[in-house]
Design a protein around this nucleic acid. Sequence first.
DNA 1: CGTCTGGTTGATACGACTCAAATTTGGTGG
DNA 2: CCACCAAATTTGAGTCGTATCAACCAGACG
Lengths: 259, 259
Amino acid sequence: MTLPTGVPEFSKFSSGSAVESRIEAFTRLSADDRQALAALGQNVRYVDSRRDLISEGDKPKYVHLVLDGWGARYKTLPDGKRQIVSLFLPGDFCDLNVYILKQMDHSIGAITRLKVAMITPDEMTRLTHDRPRVTQALWWHELVTTAIQREWTLNLGQRTAYERLGHLLVELYLRLRTVGLASNGRCDFPLTQNDLGEATGLTPVHVNRTLQELRRDGLIELGRRHLHIQDIERLKSVSMFNPNYLHLEHEGRHLDANS
Amino acid sequence: MTLPTGVPEFSKFSSGSAVESRIEAFTRLSADDRQALAALGQNVRYVDSRRDLISEGDKPKYVHLVLDGWGARYKTLPDGKRQIVSLFLPGDFCDLNVYILKQMDHSIGAITRLKVAMITPDEMTRLTHDRPRVTQALWWHELVTTAIQREWTLNLGQRTAYERLGHLLVELYLRLRTVGLASNGRCDFPLTQNDLGEATGLTPVHVNRTLQELRRDGLIELGRRHLHIQDIERLKSVSMFNPNYLHLEHEGRHLDANS
DNA sequence: CGTCTGGTTGATACGACTCAAATTTGGTGG
DNA sequence: CCACCAAATTTGAGTCGTATCAACCAGACG
């Protein structure tokens, strides 16, 4: 079986090589490395939109790798409040080695229909043993993922609604761009205003009003599952976006934050 | 040089074995494992209270291990706002493998005077090569750290000021207890109300008022750098504290959340 | 004993929430 | 192609939690 090339459901962007793109944001891969990565796509699973891939309390058995679609990690409080704590885009791995833990402390749900590879502990062991460059890249991925989590903490703790939403949109755009799913300020954008609220700690009503402000200020167009960032430099500026936490400055690639 | 046993500055609790305690929360160690851990204490550094151990923009060269004292990871916004994104207690490692990254995207500062071990990439490589049990424990530590980061995201996004502070106090108490620095609801507590504000995304004034509420409700005593949780079960309950994210249920240890 | 840091109090302002309803969009089947 | 329905978005009015600003106080320290 070769690297999956599934056709995205509502996109003109190809995500067939998202995994490679993601890893190559950090390092160049050899043919063998690519081979090893492709081999991870053996055990594929599909999850329908708005269904869970894995739920809080479950025993994690695999490392997951998103081949296509968007997912969300979320936690639920006894009083019913939900917080999306992170978003998964094509090419994203869930935590390496999760299977060490006895049970999941959160759930992972599908925003769109999801195509994920399930990687066994054995496969992970083999990979880290045989392919040091890929292993280093996975480490980089892991460090970036936790850096994003920290930035979200900052986002929720210190930014206003306006800044928070602007920041999130820029982050998602840049992340999509590194896997070839965005360009020219445009990308598919399947999150509802309710999702945005759960990710930013705002009510859907307030998300709505704040998005209108961002539109009114000529920063974005957002609707019909599509985002257009009209002036990314200004959006970065008003949301105090500093791309350093994405650690994209490796191997001289992705140095240009524009376009 | 043996495992450091430094005497804490204002504590009756010993933190000499915090590192072992932390690791043994996950797994039992062999004599060789202990030896290997102790050997990490070769390169020790002290950082005065309120000074930085490492700053945003620096090139990370070492993995840090907190031997004594409290530290904080924080991020600063261009408008001057600060957010503490995580706290380091004795026995905590900073991110394994950080030195892969080109530069720090945040700073680490000392709350109290800090005693830290600086672990070189070589040492890390040797450790993970020679001591698989320790390596697994470090992985567990890494996964727990990011789980805590997610819980903070939830905390900031969905809990009220009252719940947020209560939750943070319970978390810190439990974390201190697993390294032998807390018992009977009591622990040293060097955070100022300003620190608490920066960790919870609240203003110091509101922290002050909210702490008064927690006191008034008979949940805590807090002052003179000392915390006493009077009714931990009730505090857990009102702050919707679910200890699952600390993943302490290994090897049958630390099952009892009381005392 | 004065200085400084951290803690406390009061008055006022505002950002975000709540609740409720209307409107638009997208998908489905007749 | 249109009628229908559910989901998502939008609007309005009123409230509340937390921020802001400005003092004041207490204990630690030199």
